[in-house]
Lab assay of single mutants.
Amino acid sequence: TTLTVNTQTYTFTSEEEAREFARRYGAKTIRKTNGTWEVHG
Results as ranks from 00 to 15, higher is better:
residue 1 T to Q: 12
residue 1 T to W: 04
residue 1 T to L: 12
residue 2 T to S: 14
residue 2 T to R: 14
residue 2 T to C: 15
residue 2 T to F: 05
residue 2 T to N: 13
residue 2 T to A: 11
residue 3 L to A: 13
residue 3 L to I: 14
residue 4 T to P: 14
residue 4 T to I: 13
residue 5 V to Q: 13
residue 5 V to N: 12
residue 5 V to S: 13
residue 6 N to V: 11
residue 6 N to K: 06
residue 7 T to E: 12
residue 7 T to V: 09
residue 7 T to L: 10
residue 7 T to D: 12
residue 8 Q to V: 14
residue 8 Q to R: 07
residue 8 Q to G: 11
residue 8 Q to Y: 10
residue 8 Q to M: 11
residue 8 Q to E: 10
residue 8 Q to A: 10
residue 8 Q to W: 12
residue 9 T to C: 15
residue 9 T to L: 10
residue 9 T to M: 11
residue 10 Y to G: 02
residue 10 Y to P: 04
residue 10 Y to V: 07
residue 10 Y to E: 02
residue 11 T to P: 02
residue 11 T to Q: 07
residue 11 T to C: 15
residue 12 F to D: 00
residue 12 F to P: 00
residue 12 F to K: 00
residue 13 T to M: 09
residue 13 T to Q: 09
residue 13 T to S: 10
residue 13 T to V: 07
residue 14 S to V: 04
residue 14 S to T: 11
residue 15 E to H: 03
residue 15 E to S: 02
residue 15 E to N: 00
residue 15 E to C: 09
residue 16 E to S: 08
residue 16 E to G: 05
residue 16 E to K: 08
residue 17 E to I: 04
residue 17 E to Q: 06
residue 17 E to K: 05
residue 18 A to F: 01
residue 19 R to G: 03
residue 20 E to G: 02
residue 20 E to D: 09
residue 20 E to W: 05
residue 20 E to I: 05
residue 20 E to N: 06
residue 21 F to L: 02
residue 21 F to Q: 02
residue 22 A to E: 04
residue 22 A to H: 02
residue 23 R to A: 10
residue 24 R to Q: 10
residue 24 R to H: 07
residue 24 R to D: 05
residue 26 G to Q: 05
residue 26 G to T: 02
residue 26 G to I: 02
residue 27 A to N: 05
residue 27 A to W: 15
residue 27 A to P: 03
residue 27 A to I: 14
residue 27 A to S: 07
residue 28 K to Y: 08
residue 28 K to G: 09
residue 28 K to S: 13
residue 29 T to Y: 13
residue 29 T to Q: 07
residue 29 T to N: 06
residue 29 T to L: 15
residue 29 T to A: 14
residue 29 T to W: 11
residue 30 I to H: 05
residue 30 I to W: 02
residue 31 R to S: 08
residue 31 R to V: 12
residue 31 R to Y: 10
residue 32 K to T: 10
residue 32 K to G: 08
residue 32 K to W: 09
residue 32 K to Y: 14
residue 33 T to E: 13
residue 33 T to N: 12
residue 34 N to I: 02
residue 34 N to S: 04
residue 34 N to M: 03
residue 34 N to D: 13
residue 35 G to W: 01
residue 35 G to F: 03
residue 35 G to N: 07
residue 35 G to I: 01
residue 35 G to R: 01
residue 36 T to A: 08
residue 36 T to C: 15
residue 37 W to F: 04
residue 37 W to V: 01
residue 37 W to C: 01
residue 37 W to R: 00
residue 38 E to P: 01
residue 38 E to F: 05
residue 39 V to A: 02
residue 39 V to S: 01
residue 40 H to W: 10
residue 40 H to V: 15
residue 40 H to I: 15
residue 40 H to E: 15
residue 40 H to L: 15
